[in-house]
Design a protein around this nucleic acid. Sequence first.
DNA 1: CATCAGGAAGCTC
DNA 2: GAGCTTCCTGATG
Length: 452
Amino acid sequence: MPQTVPRSGCSPPSASQDERTVPASPADLHHLLRILGAASPPEPMLHSPPNPHAKPPPPYPEDNNSFLDRLYDFDSYPTPSPSSDEGSIPTVALQPPSPYNSLQYSNVYVKEEPNRLSVPEFASHYPLSPSGSCVSYSSHNHHSSPVSHHEEYIDIEELLKENQILQESVQQTYITPKLEVEEPRDHILLRSALEDTSFQKRLNLRPIPLELGSVKMEDSSGGASGTGDDALVAPDIDRVLSMAIEQSKRDVDNTCTVLGISPDPLQWSTSDVKAWVMFTLQHFNLPMHHKLEARLYAQLEIWKAARHEGWRPTPWPEHEQASPKPTPAVLPSADDMSDDEDSETAVASAVSAGGKAKSGSTHIHLWQFLKELLASPQLHGSAIRWLDRSNGIFKIEDSVRVARLWGKRKNRPAMNYDKLSRSIRQYYKKGIMKKTERSQRLVYQFCHPYSL
DNA sequence: CATCAGGAAGCTC
DNA sequence: GAGCTTCCTGATG
């Protein structure tokens, strides 16, 4: 839909591709939740300008089937029965967020056994009828699906070592200072779920205090380890998050397999989208009417648009190879470019190399083009750059060059900054862009959700 | 002087 | 009709 602009709605996860390629990062959890439809319900978006004053979507559905409701629906969880070797040792079930497999929650049992955790293998069964059509979801039919209780033991010390190595590796390889700044607001949903011990009290279970990413387990014997001040530190909570994320990835893949569609929304046909829409509507017991379906479809279009701008959802291992994305390492630097035309060509070819080429098309909106330039700081950082990426604030450093690039893209050799800025000002009324609160020359701000 | 703001008309798809 | 593009006048720093 070349002339269609997403006007509003739940936006794709933020951050340009060069900012975040961290597998299983905190932001990925949000991405996955959004992809799965659990993190944000569809908002009105077709033909209705975004309301900049509208409050952001809730982090989870606010209906009766909300993610957290299901997360805490322990009455319907298969409660592990005490076995002979467990005795009266309290066992607590931690539930990884897996919105798509609401029928079968496989549990993580944290036992008070020195240095050992019992972690059942995550099951991935899909609540679909034999014919392949979706069945109705409800929070009370969790028992209907078989749950694998295959367990394996993990050495806590080994886990901690692995986790430390993993964290160091990720930080050295991927994490940028910006990502670190955004870190605190990640994990909020899962962290709050894990830190809420009300369910433990309901089940007369011993609470497991969670402290800033680590799980402390109290010593039930009061023996060697003493009073709990020197409590044993269990695996970092990020380990649990990673497991949840991995499970979500499997859920997406399996769901798409069952639906017979690609896990990559960009490759979906109309019928694929329809299958996904029907599945999602039924999954959340959403009313089946035309407008809502259109909204879901529009939301999907926003995802696609985001991917064209460089954003990608959590990489699917088997699809990363099929559609490699351009990385900063393979892009020539601005210094390598003799002129703007070369750099423009380079951007287009780089994106083309990713298999999702839309760069180079004259059917592009100005705001998309600007974000395209902003997504290539190596090439265009001297012409346009982010001042505040999270708030969508950017500055045009070289108005002449930006206008020239825009003119080349649109085959408008007479383009200049005066005309370009006129187009930007047209965006004010449309709610796509605005001047920053403290108006500065050549500084503009994308409105939500265009800033994402 | 460059930029900003916005009206108005025209063009392209 | 949407999304610019072009031209314009006037204001601002």
